[in-house]
Amino acid sequence: MNDPMPASHVTCVGDIAFADAACLLSAHGLQLHHVAAGESIPGSYWGEPEAGIIASNVYVRDDTPVHSMLHEACHLIVLPPERRAQVHTDATDSVPEEDATCYLQIVLAGQLPGVGSDRLMADMDAWGYTYRLGSTRAWFEQDAEDAKAWLIERGLPVA
Rank of each mutant, 00 (worst) to 15 (best):
Y103W: 01
W150N: 03
E82K: 02
A73W: 14
V66H: 07
I152H: 03
S117P: 00
T130I: 12
V10C: 10
V60G: 02
A126Y: 06
A17K: 04
V87W: 13
T130W: 12
L104I: 01
H33V: 14
A126H: 10
L112Y: 02
D118A: 12
Q105I: 00
K148I: 12
A122C: 06
I106P: 00
G110C: 01
G128L: 13
F140T: 00
A149P: 00
E141D: 15
G47F: 12
L108N: 00
L104E: 02
A138S: 03
A147M: 11
L70Y: 15
L120V: 05
V87P: 06
L79K: 07
L133P: 01
S135A: 05
P4K: 07
H34A: 11
T101Q: 05
S44P: 05
A149F: 08
W150D: 06
E50G: 05
Y45M: 11
I41R: 01
K148A: 14
L25S: 03
G155K: 04
P4Y: 13
D118M: 03
L112C: 01
F18K: 00
V58S: 04
I77Q: 00
H88G: 09
V10N: 05
G52A: 13
Q142E: 15
R154A: 11
D20C: 01
H28A: 08
C102L: 04
R83C: 07
L76C: 08
F140V: 00
H75G: 02
G14D: 13
G43T: 11
A73T: 13
V10G: 04
R137D: 01
G43M: 10
T89V: 15
R84I: 06
G47T: 04
D146C: 10
Q111E: 10
T92M: 10
P157V: 09
H71T: 15
Y45N: 06
D93Y: 10
T11N: 05
A37M: 01
N2Q: 08
V95A: 08
G29F: 15
P4G: 11
S40Y: 04
P42L: 10
P42Y: 10
M124I: 01
L104R: 03
L76V: 09
D125C: 09
G29W: 14
